[in-house]
Write a protein that binds this DNA or RNA. Structure first.
Lengths: 127, 127, 127, 127
DNA sequence: GTGGTCTAGACCACT
DNA sequence: GTGGTCTAGACCACA
């Protein structure tokens, strides 16, 4: 798992870290019980303050993705895979909803929207 | 056209105003050349500082949606409808892209994703 | 509302602040929509780093007790009073449960426990 | 006597060990003069560092529950039963005090609190 | 070694 | 003025 941060981004550094680790967990790159890089190591790698990585890991713990254990490290939390799935599905529906709303503004027909969807889907790499 | 702001929202107030006026313009609620409420009137209606509405109108002018005329008011700008259309299409594609990326995390097949899309589309009110 | 912190306490300063503000909110000392002291003011009053009060207010926001608004301040959040009540009742039951468990270790009879309970209740100030 | 530790718990492992051994002693599961498992054996059983079990036994000795004898092992200390009793009673009163304080926040009457107490007591298994 | 907390500054965006 | 983020150190408790 690699974390890459952009200092120029609008989203805060700690949030960028959260998002990328969350993605890695959801994508199955790291598994339940795996140890994540230590707060200080990650801070060194990213050339970022320890406070920043600490905050990222704390957020991840509050969101239920990891468990931080004093003196041991940060572990990927066991997760209810059904729950993850529902979360992801809801996210997808939200994106679709936003796209449909925008299409309404553009006065596109449903057929038009379907065409755009199919086009985007085809161009998105292998399945 | 009505603007409704939420103080507790994450998005800044000036941005909320921008978005809603932009939507109204794109949706055709107001037309090219129409005059928008004055900075001070809008500030009073929304119980918001004049600085905030000023910033909103400045942003809208920079983005090309309105023209502020000293001593007269704020007018809806003439718009190249092709340009608007392209902008909206890009927004739609972005939403689709995000949905597809999320679907990748959820290990959904394209067929699954299509099903969700159709389902969301059906449930989104009349065309 | 006054916040008093003990540097010698085991519980972190930010948590002490959270607890006391939470109590003030639950007790109705401050009401929905009231403004809390600003992060910097509170930091100055308590002679504590700004980061510490910031963290306290962030925690309170995450727990749903307040809403922090950039450029305006920190407001007491509207709360579902039914939810609060349930939360408090659950807390009370937990305390009772712990007391009962301890009484089991001490091989106290239920009658003994009732006596202690009544004794503590009488000595706890006016109703 | 069995000790079960949770790595993910907030309370440190050494403290979890202390609490469970203390409970066993107070509950009479082990008696004055009984020998406890050796530091190394317990460390092996729990898959925990020897440092951790050492600290737990040291704490228990400081608190007066056990006596560590060089080269022989760890024995349950003789206890002044009156002292134990007082300790437990204080713990119970603390729990009641916390419950009463919470009830004050919830603006419950004493009668309400008594009802909850009785309800919890009834539901807590046989005497 | 690990994470948890804290300081005393700083800069930025928003009102 | 307000909150949001960040730094580069520090000390502590735990394993």
């Amino acid at each position: 798992m690699r974390v890459i941060i952009k200092n120029s981004s609008e989203t805060p550094i700690y949030e960028q870290i959260c998002e990328q680790i969350t993605s890695a967990i959801l994508a199955g790159e790291v598994n339940e019980g795996d140890v994540l890089p230590s707060i200080r190591q990650l801070a060194g790698d990213l050339k970022v303050s320890v406070m920043t990585t600490t905050r990222a890991y704390n957020e991840l713990e509050q969101r239920g993705y990891v468990v931080n254990v004093q003196g041991k490290g940060c572990y990927v939390a066991p997760r209810d895979s059904e729950l993850i799935r529902e979360q992801l599905l809801r996210t997808i529906e939200e994106h679709f909803g936003a796209a449909i709303e925008t299409a309404r503004l553009a006065k596109l027909s449903r057929a038009d929207l379907r065409t755009i969807f199919n086009f985007t889907l085809e161009g998105s790499g292998d399945e």
